[in-house]
Write a protein that binds this DNA or RNA. Structure first.
Length: 565
RNA sequence: UGGGACGUCGCCAAGCGGUAAGGCCCGGGGUUUUGAUCCCCGUAUGCGCAGGUUCGAAUCCUGCCGUCCCAGCCA
């Protein structure tokens, strides 16, 4: 064993896979799959599964299929399919030729259903949905057998064929597995295998089928047909594993994949269920699936997150079987770490306050050459025009303040980032007493040099009035005001916890001229403010829109907080 | 009240009988023309609780307690 062997803390799924490889199971091969139902957009919880499945395939020289679990045409559509393909790719994963649809296997599935009937292990049941529920029993009381449970193989075969032929109405009959009506596991009480759905047009198979296989039947068969070795899913399917195994053990499928369950991701201040996310979109609580406040991949992308930051997040949170709610700070840390290294710096004044430098030569313009990144020279430089009239941020000036306030105060000095030290001599107010501009003087000796005999501790950013560019800036905050909005059970709906201030739009912001050439999706650090990206949806002819991805860490905000308290 | 799973720092999470990794958050200090970054330093005598086995237990055993999931012709 080598001394400097790096032990990557593997999660329990990888441990299982490693011991399987060692034991020579599946010929030492690893084949996983990511199997979303195309009934909504992918969210960060799916990213966890994608990183797990594709990551394992990459690390063990295996493969990972993308498979659409499209057995319920009612809720599915091609828009979702397209978005899922795009999102998986954007995250940085490639399924190569291995794109499948569960609907590819409808004919095979039907043959296996016939096989089960022939073996006396499945039957057509005429009970209504309500009756089925009654017969199923409860968590503590055994169910009782359906009166149709002992139909002959011939009759079952005939009925299934006629179900397929469209002879019966929706809900009239289902195909059920004949397992155990008194099993303590509800999933084993003769689960439904097929139901009738006439008149719906399936996005892949059109009108060729009017019976559709259930998840519990489709999934194990699809996995086996694709020669999946490890079928990784979330914890709520653990109860289905006996059924998964039963299907594989009682049909002539070519192999028996192993189902492994891990806990799904919960993130504070948002919701993760597709049902709830769909509701937010449908009810107009957000702009759409790609609203930058949404925890969807599309939303995070538009918000300014990078694929790498999301992958990093997934490795940081790990994979286990314990219930978890990850704090937003974890996600924010990942994107800050990425953007700190990889994004160019710019200056942008979000809440402009005019500054007139009264002793600056009339009409003079200096082109200042400024580094695009303070720690990375390879990012080059740009030039910024300096003029006698500037904007600074309203938050960077106070008429009087405590010594802790390291910005501009009346009579005080401050460094203009990348430029001169200025002193505020006069505060100009309008009739209402509102500060409208500041008259300052500047120290010509302080460009690229510290002033003699005194120290100026504050540095603030600025933009030239003459050359600045108007922009719209959207400041996002958490979507919900409660850490766990869906903990609200019956009494309160999660929608009541929507944060009314999750979006603040600034329409008066002024950004430095270099930003005028930025392209949609391009990311920057606005110095002293945060990371921003150019919105993906730029309306023609309007000011550019910048989305705030995340603020900078702000220890001043913490000090302020303490002072108030 | 049946079955399945899970309980290690505020939040994630390693640990797999030899004496509690790491990350995020947090606190303190240093550098800095971003109150950013970066760099130091600090943070569980404790692993849901109670017993037991053992020279030795977060790890094994027993019993409690707590949390989550399951009664779709959804996935």
């Amino acid at each position: 064993m080598s001394e400097d062997e790096t032990v990557v803390a593997g999660n329990f799924v990888r441990q299982i896979i490693e011991s399987d490889i060692e034991a020579g199971k599946h010929d030492g091969k690893v084949a996983t799959r990511f199997p979303p139902e195309p009934n909504g957009y992918l969210h960060i919880g799916h990213a966890k599964s994608i990183c797990l499945n594709f990551g394992i395939a990459m690390d063990y020289q295996g493969t990972c299929n993308l498979r659409f679990d499209d057995t319920n045409p009612h809720k599915e559509n091609v828009e979702y399919i397209e978005s899922i393909r795009q999102d998986v790719h954007w995250l940085g994963y490639d399924w190569g030729e291995r794109l499948y649809y569960a609907s590819n296997y409808f004919e095979r599935l039907y043959e296996y259903a016939v096989e089960l009937i022939t073996a006396g292990k499945a039957y057509v049941c005429d009970l209504t949905a309500d009756e089925t529920r009654e017969y199923r029993g409860t968590l503590t009381a055994a169910g009782k057998p359906s009166p149709f449970r002992e139909r002959s193989v011939e009759e079952n075969l005939d009925l299934l064929q006629r179900m397929r032929a469209g002879e019966f109405e929706d809900g009239a009959r289902v195909l059920r597995a004949k397992i155990d009506m008194s099993s303590p596991n509800m999933n084993m009480r003769d689960p439904t295998l097929y139901r009738i759905r006439r008149g719906v047009i399936h996005h892949q198979t059109g009108e060729s089928w009017c019976i559709y296989p259930m998840y519990d039947f489709t999934h194990p068969v699809s996995d086996a047909l694709e020669r999946i070795t490890h079928s990784i899913c979330t914890l709520e399917f653990a109860d289905h594993r006996p059924l998964y195994d039963w299907i594989l053990d009682n049909t002539s499928v070519p192999c028996h994949p192993q189902q492994i369950e891990f806990s799904r991701l919960n993130l504070e201040y948002t919701v993760m269920s597709k049902r709830k996310l769909t509701a937010l979109v449908d009810e107009g609580c957000v702009e759409g699936w790609d609203d930058p406040r949404m925890p969807t991949i599309a939303g995070l992308r538009r918000r300014g997150f990078t694929p790498g930051s999301i992958r990093e997040f997934c490795t940081r949170i790990g994979v286990s079987k314990s219930e978890n709610t990850v704090q937003m700070g974890m996600l924010e840390s990942c994107i800050r770490e990425d953007l700190n290294v990889n994004s160019q710096r710019r200056m942008a004044v979000l809440h402009p306050l005019k500054v007139v430098i009264t002793d600056y030569p009339e009409g003079q313009v200096e082109q200042l050459e400024v580094a695009n990144h303070p720690q990375d020279e390879s990012m080059g430089v740009r030039s910024i025009p300096f003029t006698g009239e500037l904007y600074i941020d309203k938050n960077d000036f106070l008429e009087t303040a405590s010594k802790k306030f390291k910005r501009l105060v009346t009579g005080g000095e401050v460094r203009l980032r990348n430029a001169y030290v200025i002193r505020c001599n006069e505060v100009i107010k309008d009739a209402a007493g509102e500060i409208i501009e500041l008259h300052c003087s500047y120290d010509p000796a302080t460009l690229g040099a510290n002033p003699e005999g005194r120290k100026v501790k504050g540095v603030i950013h600025w933009v030239s009035v003459e050359y600045g560019v108007e922009a719209e800036v959207r400041l996002y905050d958490r979507l919900f005001s409660q850490p766990v909005p869906d903990s609200a059970k019956e009494d309160k709906d999660y929608r009541e916890y929507l944060n009314p201030d999750s979006l603040r739009t600034l329409t008066q912001s002024i950004v430095e001229p270099a930003l005028a050439e930025a392209n949609p999706g391009e990311r920057f650090q606005f110095e002293r403010e945060g990371y921003f990206c150019v919105d993906l949806h730029q309306p023609a002819g309007s000011p550019m829109i910048f989305n705030r991805t995340v603020t900078l860490r702000d220890s001043w905000a913490k000090i302020e907080e303490k002072q108030k308290a």
